Amino acid sequence: MSISASTSATVGEIADWLDVQGIDVTIDVAPDEAATRITGAASLACATAEQVSYYDGDRRSADLAGSTQAGLVLTNKAGRRELRETTSCLVVEQPRLAFTRLLEHLYPLPAGPAGMHASAVVDDSATIDPTARIEAHVSIGAGARIGPQVVIGPGCVIGSNVVIGEATRLLARVTLLNDSLIGARCVIQPGVVIGSDGFGLAQDKGGWRRVPQVGRVVIGNDVDIGANTTIDRGALEDTVIADGVKLDNLIQIAHNVRIGEHSAVAGCAGLAGSSEVGRHCTLGGGVGLAGHLTLTDNVHITGMSMVTRSIRRPGIYSAGTPLDTNERWHRNAARFKQLDRLARRVKQLEKRLGDMPTPEDDS
């Protein structure tokens, strides 16, 4: 069951709103249904007559498209043929994108009035724009600068000299440690820690000595950071997350990592120190990057892959063993250990074949 939207709109009003957003819309509804009020959004399988959904022609959802009870479906020309004739539709070129824009309209992030909660603790030298909102039990350190329309949710800790750009939102229990720089219009989910020390250690007489981490974390504009993700400060240089990057939950980003514009990283990925990810890259869930390697632009790594060398050419890359029955997995694992011996035998056979006389030699 999906939650109700913060605002509602008729089918006709939705069509007009999308048109104003620059999305070319063809209305395919019965005249008496243009006034149907849409109060929320849901999947094709669960949508009711008061909810909107979308269908982009994906064959995996074709059965659902033919039986959906949604009051409105955003679809494309190919998808319209899979829906019932009686289903009210708005035909657009990119249904999922239009649906996303509509969700942002129907479910805006709650803002609340500007101001500071009485329980907030703010250093006298901090600068807070009067349009910002500071919620309960927030701590803001010396020299911090909080920009206009920023929302800092309950329980957040803002260290000294932290800068937060315009309209960025920290939802709850976010920790921004000293000297971190956060751009504009970012959304940072609960439990995120930015600017903690990287894993820098030096051997000292059989033990370990912690290396002071003196770099910063620099986050660009329009960056989303998922719950409980951690981003370490640089050792000597900065850790940099560029504009438009999207980070899922439970990601570890080590010191001096750089992620280029509009790249996306799925949950449980780990990026070791000084690794660099180019622009428009994607890393699937559970991907691991070894330290000091570089991915060029437009590299896409599928889930659970371990990357141990730099990638200089764009493309899709995969690693790992696909799931199999336990019996076959054990058998194949045993064979994998024999590959080196088998390779030597193949080379020996090739050499013997190369030494054999040909029919022409016999003549």
Rank of each mutant, 00 (worst) to 15 (best):
A5Y: 07
E13W: 02
D16N: 13
V20N: 04
V20T: 12
Q21R: 15
Q21Y: 03
I23S: 12
D24F: 04
V25M: 05
T26N: 12
I27C: 10
A35R: 12
A45R: 14
G57V: 09
R60C: 02
D63I: 01
Q69H: 15
G79D: 09
T87W: 01
T87F: 01
R96E: 13
E104C: 11
L106Q: 03
L109M: 13
L109I: 15
M116G: 01
V121M: 14
V121Y: 10
S125L: 10
I134V: 10
E135F: 03
V138W: 11
G141R: 12
A144S: 09
A144K: 10
I146H: 11
I158M: 09
G159R: 03
V163K: 09
R173N: 13
V174C: 05
D179L: 11
R185M: 10
P190D: 07
G195L: 06
S196P: 00
D197Y: 01
G198V: 00
F199T: 03
K205L: 07
R209N: 14
R210Y: 06
V211L: 15
V218P: 12
D224E: 15
I231C: 00
E237M: 03
L250H: 00
H255N: 01
R258C: 08
I259R: 08
V265A: 05
G267I: 04
C268N: 11
A269E: 00
S275E: 07
S275K: 08
E276R: 15
H280V: 01
G284L: 07
V287W: 04
D297N: 11
R309M: 03
R309A: 09
P322W: 08
N326K: 11
H330C: 03
F336H: 10
Q338D: 06
Q338A: 04
L339K: 04
L342I: 09
R344N: 10
K347Q: 15
Q348K: 12
T358R: 15
